[in-house]
Design a binder for these strands. Sequence first.
DNA 1: CACTTGACTACACAGCTGTGTAGGAGTTTG
DNA 2: CAAACTCCTACACAGCTGTGTAGTCAAGTG
Lengths: 198, 198
Amino acid sequence: MDRAVEDLTARARIRDAAVKLFGERGIEGASIRDIAAEAGVSSGLVRHHFGSKEALREACDKYAKERMLQIGAELTRDGDLTGLDPLVLHPLAFPLQLYLVRSMMDGSETATALFLEGVDAVEEWTTSFGIDPKDRRGYAAALAAIKLSVFVFREQVSKALGEDITTPAGYNRIGRALMEVFTIPLLTQEQIEKQEKR
Amino acid sequence: MDRAVEDLTARARIRDAAVKLFGERGIEGASIRDIAAEAGVSSGLVRHHFGSKEALREACDKYAKERMLQIGAELTRDGDLTGLDPLVLHPLAFPLQLYLVRSMMDGSETATALFLEGVDAVEEWTTSFGIDPKDRRGYAAALAAIKLSVFVFREQVSKALGEDITTPAGYNRIGRALMEVFTIPLLTQEQIEKQEKR
DNA sequence: CACTTGACTACACAGCTGTGTAGGAGTTTG
DNA sequence: CAAACTCCTACACAGCTGTGTAGTCAAGTG
């Protein structure tokens, strides 16, 4: 599955470099020249292959989404994932997820669509697992956001734990902590009712 | 508490405009001229008061953090908040939180420090409420990230719900859904043990 | 062979960027 | 009164930005 960098076509190298730099620095923060340098090509070639920065971004959106679904399907088929696992922190998905979150925050429709599909999946998952919240859709949306939260704040969470959560050890630790959030009843029924009166 | 815009000093107007535009567009995405125009002053005045863009950013970090703690303290004192409420979506805190999250993602130490203080607060809260997770620190960090997740993905969550979660109605809906996440045991003990073996 | 096509580079261009400088207007201070 | 200070604007500058254009080179294709 891993491909040597030098084996990729220039177009693929540019796309990978764009996903990486857009993800790390944001769309505005990564220039076409930066991306070209990262890919080891001239800036003109970026334009030749993708036309404009906006078109490059859309190509990255499309690729990241497809690749993400592909990785998710592979890992699920191989039994490496259950319904709620934070796929987002998987080494293969990491740069893609980084990009997608940034793109989502900048208002990408493709990335948002992927989020909505995730909500659908969680919703179906709750049904098949016999979980029956009052507001199933709201519940699924909250869960979908939660799955991404640890990823978005990975640096801050790592700092809080004194341990890098993108390493296997840290990843397992925060994974277990998330499990506990989902198993320990946090609020009493009374507190919830008080909340609902607002 | 609300202050008329025209009553603010130019310095405060610039700072507010910077928080707003940095939060909406990211640091790179908002230029000094944009901020000056938003505040209704010349771009030179921004420099006069803050020196450089980086210094302006740091001033915004400092202000947003202080103001956020202040708002949190006020609302807690008035009994509008309990320990776990998503203050992040409060109308007063909204632009500040938007800015802080962006700043955090761009590696701000001040914003990260605020997150860490939030983790500390949640950790103390679990103790005083008799919640006893195996990994208290990890549990608190996960909860702190979760509190912010709905905010970060507010647009996506709103789209999933077909309802703007920054309005009172939507805010209450997602709030209740979050409560359910914290009350319905999501995973069986067996599943968790399977998880831990990895 | 001549000709086209696609991958690729070099260079130019206008616009925006953060920053620097000079100076005006009004108030305070000696 | 004059000097000093603060708040504020206008303008200039170099560097980077996305984009546009011209042209090189190699691989087909008739």
